[in-house]
Amino acid sequence: MKIAIFTDTYDPDINGVARTLKRFTNYLSDQNITFKIFAPKTQTGEYVSDHIHRFKSLPFFIYPECRLAFPNLLHLKSELEHFSPDLIHVATPFNIGLCGIYYAKKLNIPLVGSYHTNFDYYLQFYNLEFLSTIVWKYMNWFHRPFKKLFVPSPETLNQLKRHGFTNLEIWGRGVDCQLFHPHYDKLKVRKNYGIKRKYLLTYVGRLAPEKDLQTLLATAHILPAQISGQIQWLIIGDGPLREDLESEAPDNMLFTGYLKGQDLAEVYSASDLFVFPSPTETFGNVVLEALASGTPVVGADSGGVKNIIQEGVTGNLCTPGNAQEFANAITQLIKNDSLRTQMGFEGRKYALTQSWDTIFEHLLWSYSTVIREINEQKYA
């Protein structure tokens, strides 16, 4: 099987789409499956590989981690014909994704896609709700040609069904339980960040409006004084709101910028709670990473996050935007060490069932089904 993946974001970009695709292509390499990525050039340093074809690009104004590429179409067609894939997978609904659809039709190559980002949900956080109808019309039009559209969670599948999408199939997400685990040196993390307070609460993600970090700040400000005085917050990530958030944050909130690999895993492991107010996730990779690290999660009862957290077992789900509910949940768990420990144990146990290899094996089986059906139609 030879797979061409068209995406407007890829490693070294730091977001869920890029990380998932990098994990997938690593798996393909391990399985000796041939693939080629068509993706934008980025401003950060990127390794040179025969597996990647890069295009000039500019950042997308709502979501700078996704870039608008400007491909040379003749060059792209030549590259694709030379590669001769058995299947094209389109991962994003921008310029490169459009190229993938166009050439799948033109060259008669089986086409599938994946849906990663709730752009419609983002609109309310950028005062662009008036574009909602247009966005959904475009998304329906864009995804209609796909023989299968892979979505990361049951919640996202149901949302797209309500908007008339078809050929939907769940492509879940796994977690590296060898990297993310509860057994790192917690004292080392505390020493690295000068943490002297009893409890460590962590957020990981982009510092942008759609993550609803105003609710996180409001929660931190309204926690009871006797609880707040024992808490150190670590805010891990970067983005357009960082400067404003730092100016509004309480004294016990430290901003680290992006962390990755073992540096990130160590912080998850050392944390007593992971707090994630974002209501816009199609999945919520960071939530699963926290659970794998034995850290209970207090998250928004919305999007894919509600499919990961088992209420009262691995964490708590709160009404999106309701800082008081988040504060109450945090207070309850901070006061109850045994419950928090049990939730961490249950979270780790759940994460151990979420194997990337199993998830990717199922995706390749779905690819094979699409290719076989197309070939049967050709020669019928």
Rank of each mutant, 00 (worst) to 15 (best):
H51D: 07
F24Q: 10
A91G: 08
T25W: 06
K36V: 03
I33Q: 07
F24E: 06
I37E: 01
I52F: 03
L87E: 05
Q43R: 15
Y47W: 10
H51I: 04
Y47G: 09
K77A: 08
G100D: 01
K41D: 02
I52D: 00
D50I: 10
F38V: 03
F60Y: 15
F61E: 05
T34P: 05
L74G: 15
L87N: 07
K56A: 03
F70Q: 02
S49N: 10
G97L: 05
V48M: 06
L87M: 13
I33F: 04
F61V: 11
P85E: 11
F35R: 04
I37T: 02
S49R: 07
V90M: 10
R23P: 00
I62C: 08
I62F: 03
C66S: 15
T34V: 10
D50R: 05
F94Y: 11
C99W: 01
F70V: 04
T92S: 11
I33A: 04
F83R: 02
L98A: 12
F55I: 02
H82G: 09
R67E: 03
K41F: 01
N72I: 07
H82M: 13
H53V: 01
N72K: 05
I88Y: 00
T34C: 10
S49L: 04
E46V: 00
L68D: 09
P59Q: 07
A69P: 01
I62N: 08
N32R: 15
E81N: 14
L87H: 09
C99Y: 00
P85R: 15
F94A: 02
S78E: 10
I33G: 04
